[in-house]
Simulated assay, not measured.
Amino acid sequence: MKNYDQFHDGWLDGLLIDQKSVQVFLSTEERQPFLVVANGVVALAADGFKAGNIVFEVVTRQKEELTLQDITRAYGLAEGATGQDQAQKLLAKALEQNLIVLEINPSYGASCVLLAESVDLLHRRESLDRKFAGAIV
């Protein structure tokens, strides 16, 4: 598990969803802007958005660290035996596909859990530089 401590008491500024790609806009407590780019997203659950979403923690977990709770939350599965059976099957598939979970837990406001093939953290300026590299200005 990797914990991104720099986002404790920072902000979850928003999400941009484009088919199987999700960009998560985060800021540190000092208002340093970052972007988490998740590609090959297979499941996403985000809720509780309010003005001023304060982050408690941001973590990623790799294949061997995925849990049934990760799967249940990301897919929004029902409680009980039916949900448990689905979660077991989806966890096996996630392990087979080598997926990563990104989990953002709030102190206030929004939470987010997603399963993806890759998750990268970039400073927002770096992401703009990549996007417009080679562009004629």
Rank of each mutant, 00 (worst) to 15 (best):
M1N: 09
M1K: 10
K2Q: 05
Y4D: 04
D5N: 13
D5A: 13
Q6G: 08
Q6H: 12
H8W: 12
H8C: 12
G10M: 03
G10V: 04
L15D: 00
I17Q: 04
D18Q: 15
D18S: 15
S21V: 12
S21K: 14
V22W: 10
Q23Y: 11
Q23E: 10
V24E: 04
F25I: 12
F25T: 10
F25L: 14
L26G: 04
L26Y: 09
S27C: 05
T28Q: 11
T28F: 07
T28C: 11
T28Y: 05
T28M: 09
E30P: 00
E30R: 11
R31Q: 11
Q32S: 08
Q32G: 04
F34H: 14
V36L: 15
V36M: 15
V37Y: 09
V37R: 15
N39C: 06
G40E: 02
V41H: 00
V41L: 06
V41T: 02
V41N: 00
V42D: 00
A43G: 00
A45I: 02
A45E: 03
A46Y: 03
A46D: 07
A51E: 09
A51Q: 13
A51K: 14
N53F: 05
I54D: 02
I54R: 14
I54T: 11
I54Q: 13
E57V: 10
V59Y: 06
Q62A: 14
K63H: 08
L66P: 00
L66Y: 02
L66G: 01
L68S: 07
L68H: 08
Q69G: 04
Q69L: 07
I71N: 00
T72C: 07
A74L: 04
Y75N: 11
G76T: 08
L77P: 01
E79D: 13
E79I: 07
G80H: 12
A81H: 11
A81S: 14
T82H: 10
G83T: 03
G83A: 07
Q84C: 07
Q84F: 12
A87P: 00
Q88F: 06
L90F: 05
L90H: 01
K93Y: 03
K93E: 03
L95K: 15
L95E: 12
L95W: 08
E96Y: 10
Q97T: 05
N98Q: 15
I100K: 01
V101T: 14
L102R: 04
I104Y: 03
P106I: 02
Y108K: 06
S111Q: 08
A116R: 00
S118E: 05
S118C: 09
S118R: 14
L121V: 02
L122T: 02
H123D: 11
H123E: 09
R125Q: 12
E126N: 05
D129Y: 09
D129K: 12
R130D: 05
R130G: 08
F132D: 05
F132Y: 15
A133N: 11
G134C: 08
G134S: 10
A135V: 05
V137I: 15
